[in-house]
């Protein structure tokens, strides 16, 4: 598969404090990559660099596909809907690059993709948490992004709704074939949705394992990642488990 994004020697420092890096990796076009790791491992910092929300102290994020400025779709932890706009207005918020007629079509299509066609004129205050998060996903999808980034999109939802949305998102992502990076603390979610896991440890955040997700062996992979995350930084890098995983990933 062709490469869509290249991250080279990315470093982020907050003042004197090293928050991330150096990290380097590439993302294949149409791949779905899960960033997993403990809190403080630099996952959100990395995602914000990919989105252009945070300028790296060193290194670069290079978009290899698409013409002109790459379009990013970003789903935040909270739905972050503008309460004074309708659902359709929120989805259209990132579509200024489209003419009006195409914008309407893109909004209708994105809302249909997340099962909210009948809610275009509703206000965000009328939506449940799960529905609001689906509108946020529709807003990101409507942009037809070169890179879709999701920062723990279901973390604020109850377990029941989260499970349903995970399944729906899995089907949706495989249907739309976008290049996706998402953060999750839920290894089951990472294995269910992703086709690749980047395991991060820190601070400063580093990628300590790069693992493919196969159709079988999810339980083994989960055990391996958990074993990896139980160790910290250098210890984890020296662990026999990681060496096995690294060889597997390579």
């Amino acid at each position: 598969m062709a490469e869509a994004v290249a991250v080279r020697d990315l470093v982020v420092n907050f003042g004197e404090r090293a928050a991330l890096g150096p990290v380097s990796f590439t993302l294949a076009e149409g791949s779905i990559t899960a960033l997993v790791g403990r809190s403080g491992a630099g996952k959100t910092t990395l995602l914000r660099c990919l989105a252009g929300l945070l300028a790296p102290s060193r290194g670069e994020v290079k978009m290899l596909r698409g013409q002109g400025r790459p379009r990013i779709g970003y789903v935040f932890q909270d739905a972050r809907l503008l309460p004074w706009l309708s659902v359709a207005g929120n989805v259209a918020f990132g579509l200024t690059h489209l003419p009006r007629a195409e914008r309407r079509e893109a909004v209708a299509k994105a809302l249909a993709q997340v099962g909210l066609s009948g809610w275009a004129h509703a206000r965000p205050g009328e939506l449940s948490g799960g529905m609001a998060q689906r509108v946020a996903i529709a807003r990101a999808l409507a942009r037809a992004p070169d890179l879709l980034l999701l920062d723990e999109p279901f973390s604020a939802l109850d377990a029941f709704t989260r499970r349903h949305l995970q399944e729906e998102l899995r089907l949706l992502l495989h249907r739309v074939r976008l290049t996706v990076v998402f953060i999750t603390h839920d290894l089951d979610e990472a294995i269910a949705l992703g086709d690749r896991l980047l395991v991060m440890a820190g601070p400063p955040g580093r990628i300590v394992a790069d693992l493919p997700v196969s159709d079988t062996g999810g339980a083994l992979l989960k055990r391996q990642v958990l074993a990896l995350l139980e160790g910290s930084g250098e210890e984890a890098l020296q662990s026999p488990t990681l060496r096995v995983l690294a060889a597997h990933a390579g």
Partner: peptide, 10 residues
């Protein structure tokens, strides 16, 4: 947080 939204939506 709205500024971040506006930034990612260009």
């Amino acid at each position: 947080r709205w500024d971040e939204l506006a930034a990612v939506c260009e």
